[in-house]
């Protein structure tokens, strides 16, 4: 039996809504966060660039798998299971 790749819900922040035609919640599939982001970019071209830089998650984009900041659970290698949900929130940050 083929292993199915989970498709999960992703919450999109205000500044990325132009990529999803205003949809605040979209779906993408992947067995790791890296695959999920790649699929998200296929469905909503340009999104990958907003999330990644030099193949890593951008420093000032926070990504949460369920209730965990993905930086603490393997970043792009974090495994995705069916029923998970992903939340993307740009960091609120700045400096003088």
């Amino acid at each position: 039996m083929a292993v199915s790749t989970p498709e999960i819900d992703i919450r999109i922040p205000t500044i990325l809504l132009p990529y999803t035609s205003g949809e605040k919640s979209v779906q993408a599939s992947g067995s790791t966060l890296a695959e999920l982001v790649a699929d998200l970019d296929r469905r909503f071209p340009g999104m990958g660039e907003r999330l990644l830089e030099d193949g890593k998650l951008r420093r000032f984009i926070n990504v949460y798998l369920n209730d965990e900041d993905v930086r603490f659970i393997g970043s792009l290698d974090a495994p995705i299971s069916s029923g998970d949900s992903l939340t993307i929130l740009p960091a609120v940050a700045g400096g003088s």
Partner: peptide, 11 residues
């Protein structure tokens, strides 16, 4: 010289 919301508090 810098601020950043704590990521878990922000979620």
């Amino acid at each position: 010289t810098f601020y950043e919301f704590d990521s878990m508090e922000m979620l």
